[in-house]
């Protein structure tokens, strides 16, 4: 009986070890950290280029939750097909957008920009100098062995107060890299800077984004969940307000495409001469 229980406990432990987060092990990585980060940025840049040849569907929901019931009392929902043009510019085609019923918060341009860029965060070679990455250790996440880094924008480190909200926004938080290919497989953090000027507060909750290998090579963002309570302090013209918000983004239907179309306007279409008739 004791052996049976022990075996059962062993099986249970090994099953649990395949899910969730293992302990953070501060052992140094197998390769020098600068080498890992350089390779990561190269991989992320390659992914950014590869992603330009994909279309996908983005399903965004912002919700406010009632303080008494914790049930949604307002929502913004939008279904958008995303593609990238030849210059890598993001093209959006809204396919479903029911009426916005958010009443306690108003979405801002920064929120929608975060959905497009900060939530599905990638860290390419040109962007790498913008961040300070600090190695935290190794960690097993589900069935993946990862390296964990703290990721902080250098501008934030330099002087947080000098960074204006109108300036570029960054990701700040923790990133998990696959030990195998040094690509980002998970992130948890927040878009910064958060605007805390009295009367102009523009806040957003912390979020977690999960990535998945779609094409057997690159890790694509597939799901983001943000959940938090935003505190809007009182000031001369307004009372304080606390709002529980939840954001979910699903990135689905990744499809690779490749097409080059050239249109000529106002010029004669070159034609091949007809072969001589016999």
């Amino acid at each position: 009986m004791t052996r049976t229980l022990l075996l059962f406990a062993t099986i249970l432990t090994s099953t649990q070890a395949q899910q969730g987060f293992g302990p953070l092990d501060p052992t140094p990585p197998a390769a020098p950290i600068p080498q890992i980060l350089t390779h990561m940025a190269q991989q992320e840049s390659a992914f950014a280029n590869a992603r330009d040849h994909y279309t996908f569907r983005q399903d965004v929901t912002f919700e406010t939750l009632a303080p008494d019931t914790n049930q949604p009392d307002g929502a913004y929902h939008q279904l958008t097909d995303i593609s990238f043009d030849d210059a890598g510019r993001r093209q959006e085609h809204v396919v479903f957008a029911p009426a916005n019923t958010l009443q306690r918060v108003t979405l801002t341009e920064a929120d929608l920009d975060d959905v497009a860029h900060r939530l599905p965060f990638i860290l390419t070679t040109p962007e790498l100098p913008d961040y300070t990455l600090t190695y935290l250790g190794r960690q097993r996440v589900d069935q993946l062995d990862t390296y964990v880094f703290d990721c902080t924008p250098r501008e934030i480190l330099k002087d947080h107060r000098s960074l204006q909200v109108e300036d570029h926004r960054y990701f700040q938080g923790r990133i998990w890299l696959s030990q195998q290919d040094h690509q980002i497989v998970l992130i948890h953090g927040q878009a910064v800077p958060q605007d805390t000027r009295p009367g102009h507060e523009n806040l957003s909750p912390p979020f977690t984004t999960y990535y998945q290998q779609i094409d057997g090579k690159y890790w694509f963002p597939i799901y983001t969940r943000a959940d938090g309570t935003l505190h809007f302090p009182a000031h001369a013209d307004a009372l304080s307000q606390t709002v529980h918000v939840r954001t979910t983004v699903r990135y689905t239907d990744y499809k690779r495409f490749h097409a080059t179309v050239t249109l000529h306007y106002g010029t004669e279409v070159p034609t091949t001469p007809n072969p001589p008739q016999p």
């Binding site: 306690r104 918060v105 108003t106 979405l107 507060e201 013209d237 307004a238 307000q241 709002v243």
Partner: peptide, 11 residues
């Protein structure tokens, strides 16, 4: 996100 002014205005 901004707090909605309608509910933040001091009554």
């Amino acid at each position: 996100m901004w707090a909605s002014r309608a509910t933040r205005d001091r009554p």
